[in-house]
Amino acid sequence: MGQFSLFRHYYDGGVPPVFKAAAAENGVSAADSTAYLGYTIAAATFILAMLAPS
């Protein structure tokens, strides 16, 4: 139960905590880190779609 509350303390939305922490360490704002995550997911989805068998 303690682990769940710890996870909940650090998790503040749709952005994974590790990604948000890495962005914050590099001086990226919270809004920009969310945008960068969206761009990353979109690019990964596109690459996966291109590599998928037809």
Results as ranks from 00 to 15, higher is better:
36 Y>N: 07
30 A>M: 07
30 A>D: 14
32 D>M: 04
24 A>F: 02
1 M>Y: 05
6 L>I: 08
35 A>Y: 12
51 L>W: 06
24 A>P: 03
4 F>I: 14
30 A>I: 02
38 G>T: 06
3 Q>K: 12
33 S>D: 13
5 S>P: 01
1 M>T: 09
16 P>D: 08
34 T>Q: 14
30 A>F: 05
12 D>S: 09
29 S>Q: 00
8 R>Q: 13
27 G>T: 04
6 L>Q: 15
48 L>H: 04
6 L>E: 10
2 G>S: 12
38 G>L: 02
4 F>H: 06
47 I>S: 03
13 G>L: 13
7 F>E: 15
21 A>N: 08
20 K>I: 01
47 I>K: 06
18 V>S: 07
22 A>P: 00
49 A>K: 09
6 L>W: 06
22 A>Y: 06
27 G>V: 04
37 L>W: 00
9 H>N: 14
42 A>W: 01
14 G>W: 11
6 L>G: 10
38 G>H: 04
48 L>D: 08
9 H>L: 14
36 Y>K: 15
20 K>Y: 02
49 A>D: 11
14 G>V: 08
11 Y>E: 07
21 A>S: 11
32 D>A: 14
38 G>Q: 05
43 A>S: 02
35 A>V: 07
39 Y>E: 07
41 I>H: 03
13 G>P: 09
27 G>K: 05
1 M>Q: 10
42 A>Q: 04
6 L>A: 15
16 P>N: 01
29 S>L: 00
13 G>Q: 11
23 A>C: 15
45 T>H: 01
53 P>E: 10
53 P>R: 05
3 Q>W: 11
20 K>C: 00
27 G>L: 06
18 V>H: 04
46 F>W: 12
18 V>G: 03
15 V>A: 07
1 M>E: 12
4 F>A: 10
36 Y>E: 14
2 G>C: 07
28 V>E: 01
33 S>C: 11
7 F>M: 11
34 T>Y: 08
33 S>I: 01
3 Q>R: 11
9 H>G: 04
40 T>R: 05
11 Y>R: 15
20 K>T: 01
45 T>K: 02
35 A>P: 03
12 D>H: 08
40 T>S: 10
37 L>M: 14
27 G>R: 04
20 K>S: 11
29 S>F: 00
44 A>P: 00
38 G>S: 07
50 M>L: 15
49 A>E: 05
25 E>W: 04
41 I>N: 03
6 L>V: 09
40 T>Y: 06
28 V>Y: 00
5 S>F: 13
45 T>E: 14
40 T>A: 10
52 A>M: 15
1 M>R: 12
2 G>M: 11
5 S>I: 10
20 K>M: 04
1 M>H: 14
42 A>T: 06
1 M>L: 13
32 D>W: 00
11 Y>M: 08
36 Y>F: 09
